[in-house]
Design a protein around this nucleic acid. Structure first.
Length: 567
RNA sequence: CGGGGUGUAGCUCAGUAUGGUUAGAGUACCUGGUUUGGGACCAGGGGGCCGAAGGUUCGAGUCCUUUCACCCCGACCA
């Protein structure tokens, strides 16, 4: 492409609202332009990057036997009613009626559509397994889209779905897809981590997220210092503390603790470690039809993990509750304890099961119990994992310690089991001629989010630094002075030669000054720029590598071979 | 969905407290000239329903009411 003809509106100024590097540079370098909240136009450069990422995905998918399809973007609302997700998704589903008053939704994901496509067409175990996927625009009417391509309402996702006759076969496919996804991210030049994730409302027996490591990531992940373990903080586990602080020794006793309400005060007042205190987090737990106050008890040194709390209570959501609401039902904030607690339902963190030497509220103003042995509640209370892991906690799989880092969720793979096939009555006949629901897996990867992720990981103050597999053009040929005939002649000849070799090449033939064109090339982020300039008189040109910002002199006679070596 | 903020030239923003010539700057764009190794300079030029609708006033970018959009924090997010 000739730069003079290219539609690449670069700008010195970033959009006023852009905060992320990927948003700023993709906008400034003329890749994307915003249309409305969470909606972006992809301009030629972005389109090329997207296509390159899609090609990598396609190649890896075809290696593992997945087949590409494309389902319609507009989906009948009936299907969503059939699976029950029309309520679950709520306002995120963009709904509308056609001229015949039929209700449709723009597809936010395609489980229902894919099951509908396969049911009654694949009817025998002999035709399983089957793995179908598509690259498709998705639409989710998010409450708060943000961060450019990172969290748009409209975005491109690769979504794949597999169908199996057994859980074992699903496990095999899941493993194969995890490997394929890892290969894809490695090829794209991304540093990532595969982590265990919360399966959430979609259910299923397992899910893993592929996280691109970046400070700007919206997810917190816990990773082990010595083994491969990594997990989203929503799902992260830990081992019991192998070296707990020294336990306070006391006979079971009600103890006067005037005005001591917080865990810090309590630990200070009794001169004990917060590890031996029991904290209560009161929340309102919301179900489909009703809501109620639930008391969550955990160690004073821990915090409630809301996703775990939701899973433990089967709730739709959990919201804060005021002290007044607690007093109304006879609960005394600051002195809430699990013993003889009959005012509200409660959930106790599983680590407190059988824990001795604890201190907790006595459900009476200004009193705490000391010397509590939680064993007394062993058979009567509901224990569940509700505590959030802390940095420094012990890995659940080895002796290592956990630390936190931020990640961008670019992939999520699920073992769905039969959730959707049962809901949508999608069945096949097994060896005995008996109808069985498909065992399913689903595998998502955010294509447009990957575009942003590459830049989050690969940029500097000058702009984008594309990796080889993602670059919109591999080589930029810069003619420093367009009035110099020798420079133009060499530029044109190299341009033709590289095109001949199918190298993706840009020829900067604009009538601009050297500095302007360099800044532009750096902002866009071509991996290599061939600078044809003053040194041409002495038979030399330069190769500028974007990543290192180094210029290397090359003899004119060998420049073609030199650049072919690099690309 | 709660809290906050912003809408003026393609883009980034002044101007709005206290209403008053023809609404400004930088940048981008067009013309001409100079310049040609780090977003260069000089001269000239085009570009605006001041988010929208009502209202107050002799007069509204500026005051009042309504509304829409976008952004930020949080909640939410297979």
């Amino acid at each position: 492409m000739r730069r003079s003809r290219a539609f690449i509106p670069t700008s010195k100024e970033a959009p006023s609202d852009a905060t992320l590097a990927s948003h700023i540079y993709l906008a400034r370098a003329g890749f994307i332009s915003q249309v409305a909240a969470g909606l972006y136009n992809y301009m030629p450069l972005a389109k090329r990057v997207i296509r390159k990422i899609e090609n990598v995905i396609n190649e890896e998918m075809s290696k593992v036997g997945a087949q590409e399809v494309e389902l319609s973007f507009v989906t009948p609302a009936d299907l969503w009613a059939e699976s029950g997700r029309i309520e679950k998704f709520g306002k995120e589903l963009l709904r509308f009626k056609d001229r015949k008053e039929n209700l449709f939704v723009l597809g936010p994901t395609h489980e229902e559509m894919m099951v509908d496509l396969v049911r009654n067409r694949v009817t025998s175990y002999k035709n399983l397994p089957l793995n179908l996927y598509q690259m498709k625009t998705k639409f989710r009417d998010e409450a708060r889209p943000r961060f450019g391509l990172m969290r748009g309402r409209e975005f491109i996702m690769k979504d794949g779905y597999s169908f199996h006759a057994s859980v074992e076969d699903l496990d095999r496919e899941f493993e194969s897809m995890e490997q394929a996804y890892k290969t894809i991210l490695t090829r794209l030049g991304l540093e990532y981590r595969v982590v265990e994730a919360d399966s959430g409302a979609i259910g299923g027996s397992g899910s893993k997220e592929l996280m691109v490591i970046a400070d700007s990531g919206e997810d917190t992940i816990a990773i082990c210092s010595s083994c491969e373990y990594g997990a989203n903080i929503e799902a992260a586990k830990r081992s019991f503390n192998p070296n707990p602080p020294k336990a306070p020794e006391a006979e079971f006793n009600k103890f006067l603790t005037p005005d001591v309400k917080s865990i810090e005060d309590l630990a200070e007042f009794l001169k004990i470690d917060a590890y031996y205190t029991i904290k209560c987090v009161a929340k309102r737990v919301v179900y489909e039809e009703e809501s109620e106050i639930v008391l969550f008890f955990l160690r004073g040194c821990d915090n409630l993990q809301e996703v775990k709390a939701i899973n433990a209570t089967d709730a739709l959501e959990i919201v804060d509750v005021s002290e007044e609401e607690l007093k109304e039902i006879g609960i005394i904030p600051g002195f809430i304890g699990p013993l003889d607690q009959d005012k509200a339902k409660h959930v106790i963190d599983c680590e407190l099961k059988n824990a001795p030497n604890m201190v907790c509220g006595a459900n009476e103003k200004d009193y705490h119990y000391v010397g509590v042995d939680m064993k007394v509640l062993e058979d009567v209370a509901y224990f569940a994992e509700i505590a959030e892991v802390n940095e420094g906690d012990t890995c659940p799989h080895c002796e290592g310690t956990l630390s936190f880092t931020k990640g961008i969720e670019v992939g999520h793979i699920f073992k769905l089991g039969t959730t959707y096939s049962e809901a949508l009555k999608a069945e096949y006949l097994d060896e005995n001629g008996k109808a069985q629901p498909f065992v399913m897996g689903t595998y998502g990867m955010g294509v447009s989010r990957l575009v942003a992720s590459v830049i989050e990981q690969h940029h500097d103050e000058q702009g984008c630094i594309w990796t080889k597999e993602t670059a919109p053009y591999m080589v930029n040929i810069m003619i420093s002075n367009i009035k110099n005939e020798a420079q133009v002649a060499l530029g044109e000849s190299l341009y033709a030669q590289l095109q001949e070799k199918n190298v993706e090449v840009m020829l900067d033939d604009r009538k601009e000054r050297f500095g302007f064109k360099m800044k532009d090339a750096e902002l866009i982020g071509f991996p290599y720029t061939i600078i044809i300039g003053k040194e041409l008189e002495n038979g030399a040109v330069q190769i500028y590598e974007r990543k290192t910002q180094e210029k290397q002199a090359v003899n004119v006679d060998t420049i073609f071979e030199a650049i072919m070596e690099l690309v």
